[in-house]
Design a protein around this nucleic acid. Structure first.
Length: 218
DNA sequence: TCCCAGGTGTCTC
DNA sequence: GAGACACATGGG
């Protein structure tokens, strides 16, 4: 059933070619900056980092924390995120010469544990980095995922993160490209048609979703 | 003027 | 272990 949702979304939108980011490090930075924040605000902060020439692990790590926070201001929680980004940059420099694609992915469970030990990297952020920056076949459970699948009545949106992640990973091929695209489809769908209000005006799940408008309905 | 947005860490009970 | 709260900007 979960795979059916992907097929419906893929048929509607085609492959998404996502996550936005020119480098793996930029994707990892985006994963931290998007915490409880809209992507448009994240884009502003990333543009600031690029303009300042600090979107590289070692450079970012060497920046005074207040200077980094000032660049991150549009993304909100800038003091918190400045500390989190430097912690992540330190981890990447130490383990992968600053390049997430060079992280040792042979034992993904161990790598996930190591990422979770970095201050400011929780489960969603760790999985976003693993999937989008490293290419590990893991599934990202975010607010959009909970909202869509909760509405479809396929999953309990309040369920534990790892429980939901295990459900998705058991139902889908261990293909990072597919898992990447599936999550991207969920995000695109949520942004276009499945916001909390108004509900699903052109939702492809009109016959599934208990809150979507029904044919001939009021 | 509110409410919301792709979380996480800390504190309290 | 669960729940409350802090962290902050920008758009609708």
């Amino acid at each position: 059933m979960l795979a059916d949702v992907y097929r419906v979304l893929l048929a509607q939108r085609g492959h998404q070619g996502w996550w936005p980011g020119e480098t793996a490090f930029e994707m990892a930075v985006g994963a931290v900056l998007t915490q409880n924040t809209s992507w448009t605000n994240v884009e502003r902060a990333i543009a600031n980092l690029k303009a300042a020439g600090v979107l590289e692990a070692r450079v970012l790590l060497g920046l005074p924390i207040d200077d980094l926070a000032a660049l991150l201001r549009p993304a909100g929680y800038f003091n918190v995120k400045a500390r989190r980004l430097q912690a992540l940059a330190a981890f990447l420099v130490d383990r992968a010469d600053g390049d997430p694609t060079r992280l040792p992915a042979g034992d993904p469970t161990r790598l996930r544990q190591d990422l979770l030990a970095v201050p400011g990297v929780g489960r969603e952020t760790a999985d976003s980095i693993l999937l989008y920056a490293v290419g590990v076949p893991t599934f990202v459970i975010d607010a959009y995922t909970r909202r869509l699948f909760g509405r479809l009545g396929l999953l309990d949106p309040e369920a534990d993160y790892d429980e939901l992640r295990a459900t998705f990973e058991a139902a889908l091929p261990r293909d990072p490209g597919l898992l990447n695209d599936f999550h991207a489809q969920i995000v695109a769908h949520a942004k276009d048609t499945c916001r909390p209000r108004p509900l699903c005006p052109e939702c492809p799940f009109a016959n599934w979703c208990p809150t979507a408008p029904r044919e001939g309905g009021s």
